[in-house]
Amino acid sequence: MLPAPAPVINSTTAEFWKATTEGRFILQRCDACDIVLWFPRRNCPKCWTENVSTFDAQQTGTIYSFTVVRKGTGAFKDAGPFVIAYVELADGPRIMTNIVDCDIDALHIGMPVEMVFHDTGEGSALYRFRPASR
């Protein structure tokens, strides 16, 4: 499995990362202007209100762009070739992530993908994607 180094967590992102340990991917929506937010924040970046609420997002999307990193460094030094991507979620945001459990040569922009969670062992799980099963 691709290494899953623990992310930096702060008071604003704690709820998000706790949800990942339960297999949930939560997004925020601004109650005032109704846009979906990415990444988690206290204030809406469009109208700056603090009236934002969370919802359980769909765990599907399509590949917006991707690259195959031929040789990693640090925690990824021995990972072999791996994939960094932007996935456009069904709920809208384009998020940076990894594509895993895939045939690297078969990846393409527009490919449907579904979310998997990789436990970091430190109270969080990384949200990654694999080719959709159907």
């Binding site: 180094p5 702060n10 990415w38 762009s65 690259t67 791996f82 991507a85 992530t97 922009i109």
Partner: peptide, 24 residues
């Protein structure tokens, strides 16, 4: 505030993210 969301995917330098732009 992007910390944790734009790092940790194995990004170890500029080539990895510029490649995303090239691919698109």
């Amino acid at each position: 505030s992007d910390a944790g969301f734009e790092s940790g995917w194995g990004i170890a330098g500029a080539p990895h993210t510029y490649a995303l732009a090239a691919q698109r």
